[in-house]
Computed example of a mutant assay.
Amino acid sequence: MLQIGGAAMLQLTDIAQHVRESRKAQKLTQAALAARAGISRAQIERLENDKLGDMGIVLILRVLRVLDLELTLQAFNHGRPTLDDLVKDNEG
């Protein structure tokens, strides 16, 4: 899972790296991934090289779905502990 928000803020470069690594781990070529996502191989290449240009979030989400990746958003907590942080502190 890719997560954006809180302390684990990802940059587009991180998403590009996850896409490239997941594609290779699944032994997919850029062309095969592109075909499954319904976009061009050139768009996959731009995504993997962090040169998105006009590639919108809908196309990025289609690629992530093919790779069984999920992008989640969460409210920024401004440094306050999350419930998960409090549970971990209580267990230790």
Rank of each mutant, 00 (worst) to 15 (best):
Q3T: 11
Q26M: 14
Q43L: 11
S22I: 02
V58W: 03
E48H: 07
M1W: 02
L33M: 10
Q11C: 08
G53T: 10
D89A: 13
D89H: 04
R23C: 05
L12C: 10
I57D: 08
D84T: 12
L33R: 05
L12E: 13
R20A: 04
L86V: 06
L73S: 02
V66A: 05
R46S: 08
Q30S: 07
R20N: 03
S40F: 01
K27N: 14
G38E: 10
A34G: 07
I15S: 02
L59T: 06
Q26W: 04
D50G: 06
H78A: 11
E48S: 09
I4K: 04
N77Q: 05
Q17K: 09
A75P: 02
T29W: 04
G53C: 13
Q3Y: 06
E45W: 13
Q74K: 15
L69I: 04
A16N: 08
T13E: 15
D68Q: 12
S22A: 15
S22F: 01
G92R: 10
E21F: 09
D50Q: 10
H78W: 07
Q17C: 03
P81V: 04
T29Q: 04
A25Q: 13
Q30Y: 05
V19A: 01
K24D: 06
R80K: 15
A31S: 14
I4G: 00
D54N: 13
D85K: 01
H18T: 09
F76H: 11
A32Q: 10
L28M: 11
M1T: 07
T72Y: 04
T13W: 05
A8E: 13
N49Y: 07
L12A: 12
Q26G: 03
Q26A: 10
Q17T: 10
V66F: 00
L61P: 02
K51W: 01
A35C: 05
K51S: 12
T13R: 12
S40W: 06
Q74L: 12
L28V: 07
R20W: 00
L10W: 04
G6V: 03
D54I: 08
V63H: 00
E45F: 12
A75M: 06
D85L: 06
L28F: 12
R23H: 08
N77H: 09
G5S: 08
D84H: 13
L52P: 01
T29D: 01
V19I: 15
T29P: 01
S22D: 05
V87P: 02
A34C: 13
V63M: 05
G5L: 07
L12W: 14
K88A: 10
L52G: 08
L28W: 11
L83P: 03
L69Q: 09
I4Q: 00
L61V: 06
G92S: 10
D50E: 14
I44D: 00
A8V: 07
L67C: 03
Q26Y: 01
A7N: 14
